[in-house]
Design a binder for these strands. Structure first.
Lengths: 141, 141
DNA sequence: TTCAACTGTAACTGCTAATATTACAGTAAC
DNA sequence: GTTACTGTAATATTAGCAGTTACAGTTGAA
């Protein structure tokens, strides 16, 4: 899985944990353990999609716009990492003079499309709010 | 997805297509579009797991041992690519003094374990024989 | 009105993982 | 014993990705 998906989910969970709070890319990056520029890139993208609001300038940062229980991992997956299951590498060649070799790419592709759908429907059942709940449970355990 | 998974599946489908036929690593590699040494590595592994028989020396090569309808993609996935969904990169840090940052790795991990199970159960419903059937359908379409 | 603290982006570096390739010892058929 | 294979390890090469730097633009406050 794509690391931008993880950065996005982690950032949203963090923002859900401190509602109404602005968090700067530096704070978030320290929590996620990555570079602030990566956080800005990911959250800048989520801003365009309406998940967060940003404020530039002094005292600025990022803030949740949506309800944590209205954001699923499937939404984030589609935004940040769609198609990441399907391999870049592929075998066979449609020009080939062999039934197996020439059709394998298409068949393999349909297999991975199906897998992608299964994955999305699994992610669709997990919200950012639930992620936060799971973290709280683990904390108190 | 791991390319060795694809090489394994493609090779098995190819062998299923020509039963009782020995195919050399060179023939298979030409069909898969990769290097013979990679095919030997992958099929050598499948030999140890009982999927194929190999014969060294002149006229040697690889041959299917199992019934194509008895081999599922889940079997191959577990052998060749288990855990490939779970990202190597991970956010947060258990040592951190923040509930979210310190528990995120575990929670994220449990999410991906679940995803992996969904993926395996999907692959469990697709056999090598079915892959071959799909290829034949596509050929005649 | 200037300074300080931010975001937005693009460009670049460096690392790591994955694929390709080479090489050669071992083995079997003819 | 020669040819055609597998088995396997070592090495090169490539591509993708995370990390980093840099700087222009924006905002709030002294």
């Amino acid at each position: 899985m794509n690391s931008e998906f993880i950065i996005a989910v982690h950032s949203l969970v963090l923002l859900a944990h401190k509602p109404d709070c602005m968090a700067s890319s530096e704070e978030i990056a320290a929590n996620v353990c990555t570079h602030p520029a990566r956080v800005r890139k990911v959250l800048g993208f989520l801003r365009k999609r309406g998940y967060v609001a940003t404020r530039e300038g002094s005292g600025g940062g990022y803030k949740l716009l949506k309800d944590p229980s209205d954001m699923t991992l499937a939404d984030i997956y589609r935004e940040m990492a769609a198609g990441s299951l399907t391999p870049t590498w592929c075998s066979g060649n449609p020009e080939m003079d062999c039934m197996v070799g020439s059709n394998m790419q298409d068949v393999m592709n349909s297999v991975f499309c199906g897998a992608e759908q299964k994955l999305e429907s699994y992610f669709a059942e997990i919200t950012i709010g639930q992620m936060l709940s799971r973290i709280k449970e683990r904390q108190h355990a």
